[in-house]
Computed example of a mutant assay.
Amino acid sequence: MLAFKPDVEMIKVARDYVAEIAAEWPVDGYHVRVVVSELVTNAIRHARTDEIRVDAGSDGDVHAVKVWDGDGTLPVSRAPGPDAVGGRGLVIVGELVSRWGALRDVAGGKTVFAEWGVRPPKTPPQRRRPPVGGEPVIVDGWDFGAGQLLTPGDVATMFRVEPKTVTRWADGGKLASIRTLGGVRRFSRQQVEHLMFGDGVR
C-alpha cells in the first residue's frame, strides 16, 4: 500500500506504483494509469483529508484499484455540460472499468474502488450485507444505501414486466445490482427511477 499527503506531485508516483503491480493483469495498462490518475486527483482536489492511501491487487479473476481518503463524503458521477471545463473524471473511469464504486469506512473516511474482469453474472458475486443505519453504498455510480434498495418484484411492478425480465436485464448488465447474504438480488431505486424517467432500459 502507498500512503502519502495530498500533493499533486504524488499522482504520478501513485500511477507508477499501481502500474507496476498491474503489469501482469490482462488489462490495458494505459487504462489502469488513467483510472489511478482520476481517482487520486479526485481525492486530492475534493477530499478534506490529511492522508491518501492507494492499493491494488488481484484474486486471479478480478483486478482492483482502491483509493482511500479521510473524507466520508461519497463521490457522485455527473454528466457535465458540453462547455464544462472539468467534472468528467468519474465518467471516464466508468467507461474504462468493469465496475467502480465507493464505500464509507466504519473507522472513518471512504474507499473508492475500480475493478476489471468482474465475474460474469452466472457466477455468484461477492455477497454484501445489506446497508444499515443509513450507511451509503455506491456501486457503478448508483446509490445502494439503506432506503434505496428494491427487490426484483418491486422493479418488475414499476416497469410493468415479469420479474424474470428484470433478472435478464441484470444478467445482461443493464441494471446494476448487489446480493444480500442470502443471495437475493437488490436494485438501486436511484438507477431504476433514472431509467424510468430517462431513456429507459435498452
Rank of each mutant, 00 (worst) to 15 (best):
K12H: 13
R99M: 10
V91Y: 06
P6E: 00
D55Y: 05
V76L: 11
V93A: 01
S77E: 14
V34C: 11
I11F: 09
S58M: 06
R99H: 06
V32L: 08
P6V: 01
V40I: 12
P26S: 02
V93S: 07
E51H: 10
A43M: 04
D69G: 08
G29K: 14
E9A: 15
V27Q: 05
V32F: 13
R53D: 04
P26L: 01
A23N: 14
T41N: 10
A14P: 00
V13D: 00
G94M: 04
P6Y: 05
A64C: 13
A23S: 15
E51K: 02
V32R: 08
S77V: 11
V32I: 14
A79I: 15
G57K: 02
P80H: 02
M10P: 01
S98Q: 01
L96Y: 12
D83A: 13
E51Q: 14
P82E: 10
D83G: 10
A56V: 03
A43D: 02
K5F: 12
T49Q: 09
P6F: 04
G87N: 06
H46D: 11
R33D: 07
G86F: 12
E51F: 06
M1T: 13
A102S: 15
D83F: 15
G70D: 07
D61A: 03
V18C: 07
R48L: 12
V93K: 06
I92R: 10
R45N: 13
E24W: 13
D83M: 12
T73V: 14
D71Y: 11
G81R: 09
R88K: 13
L2Q: 03
M1H: 14
P82V: 10
D69Q: 11
T41A: 14
L103W: 11
G60Q: 07
G89F: 07
K66R: 12
Y17K: 04
K5I: 07
G57V: 01
I44L: 09
R33N: 04
A79R: 15
G57Y: 03
I21F: 03
W100F: 08
D50K: 12
H31C: 06
I21Y: 08
A3D: 11
D7W: 00
V35P: 09
L74Q: 06
V34D: 01
V32D: 02
G86R: 12
D28L: 05
D50E: 14
I21T: 07
R53Y: 04
E38F: 07
L103C: 06
T41E: 12
P6L: 02
E38H: 12
I44G: 03
R53V: 11
R78Q: 14
V34E: 05
D55P: 01
E9Y: 09
G94Q: 08
S37G: 15
A3Y: 05
A43L: 05
T73N: 10
Y30P: 00
